[in-house]
């Protein structure tokens, strides 16, 4: 498989004081692949995703790096060229559909707007939208077309947003915690819907979440971020069976065990540092039980191994 997306040495900073939020992040996504980006608040996972779409908030900017999508560096495109890619070739769904959808505009008009603002060969636009709504499990697409977002439940709004993101059949769908605000049985419905549509359309997906259970069941590969950097990349099987980075292992160990084991939970002491506080050391070293002197004086680079890569001087399960 060829790479659909390649992010190289991406850094995002606060424009005013140049404090680093995303630090030298590189990863790639193959055509048709689903990749999960896992990390806690402030780890830089959402900012990395927003950088791909050129949607960073005012006050933040990309300091360095490349974002190659189908061989084109998105960072070198004009606003017009970027607009044509956004929504058309790369679409995004967000955590809270109530804030992502326009509350004073009918669903049908919002979906129509997507078609209006891009070039495409869809003849009957309304029929295309109604089909799209039906495909995401909305029982009465005609009624939905004339409804406002507040008339829907959270799960139904998320379905509308997914329908909107798929209207122009993007090659890449970026999802930023789209099921975190939903109830578990509704989350399950949405996960099933996304898994089905991705398979049907052979679409690539970047799924951002802090929920390791979702990642384990939905994606092919996992990227773990910590304090603005990628600390581990691996296949979902390897990552959950034999994590290499002590942070990944710590996260997995801190989850309550399944079954009848209710021993004290293994916690990771301390809290993550701010990305800009990490200068020449491993960001995780102060919380790491296997840290040695070098971890506090040198920054471990991301090194490839057989199944992925890890940024650690003393990866678990032997040298990488």
């Amino acid at each position: 498989m060829s790479n659909l997306l390649e992010i190289k040495n991406l850094s995002v900073v606060i424009s005013d004081d140049k404090r680093v939020l995303v630090n030298d992040v590189s990863f790639e996504l193959k055509a048709g692949e689903a990749v999960g980006v896992v990390g806690e608040s402030g780890s830089g996972k959402t900012l990395s995703a927003l950088s791909i779409l050129g949607l960073l908030a005012r006050g933040l900017r990309i300091d360095s790096g490349e974002i190659n999508f189908q061989g084109k560096d998105l960072l070198k495109l004009s606003t017009e060229e970027m607009r044509e890619i956004r929504g058309n070739q790369i679409a995004m769904i967000y955590q809270d559909p109530m804030t992502a959808l326009n509350p004073v505009m009918k669903i049908g008009d919002q979906l129509m707007e997507v078609l209006d603002s891009h070039e495409h060969e869809i003849a009957d636009r309304k029929a295309h939208i109604l089909n799209g709504l039906a495909a995401v499990g909305i029982a009465d697409p005609d009624r939905a077309f004339d409804s406002y977002p507040h008339e829907f439940s959270g799960g139904m709004r998320q379905r509308v947003m997914i329908a909107m993101s798929l209207l122009l059949s993007p090659q890449l769908l970026i999802a930023d915690e789209p099921t975190t605000a939903l109830d578990v049985t509704i989350q399950r419905q949405i996960l099933a819907l996304v898994a089905r549509e991705r398979k049907r359309r052979q679409m690539s997906m970047l799924w951002i979440t802090h929920d390791l259970g979702v990642v384990a069941n939905l994606v092919d590969r996992v990227i773990v971020m910590y304090a603005g950097r990628v600390v581990e990349v691996g296949t979902v099987e390897e990552m959950f069976k034999a994590p290499k980075h002590p942070y990944t292992a710590g996260l997995l160990a801190s989850l309550p065990a399944v079954g009848n084991n209710r021993e004290k939970l293994a916690s990771i002491p301390g809290v993550p540092p701010k990305p800009w506080q990490v200068i020449n050391n491993c960001a995780f070293a102060p919380r790491c039980s296997s840290a040695k002197d070098i971890c506090f004086s040198h920054r471990p680079e991301l090194k490839n191994n057989q199944t992925g890569s890890v940024a650690c001087f003393f990866p678990l399960g032997g040298a990488s």
Partner: peptide
Amino acid sequence: QSIPEHTTVRGI
């Protein structure tokens, strides 16, 4: 059954 468990990779 709805809960995606981290112990069942691709098991859902």
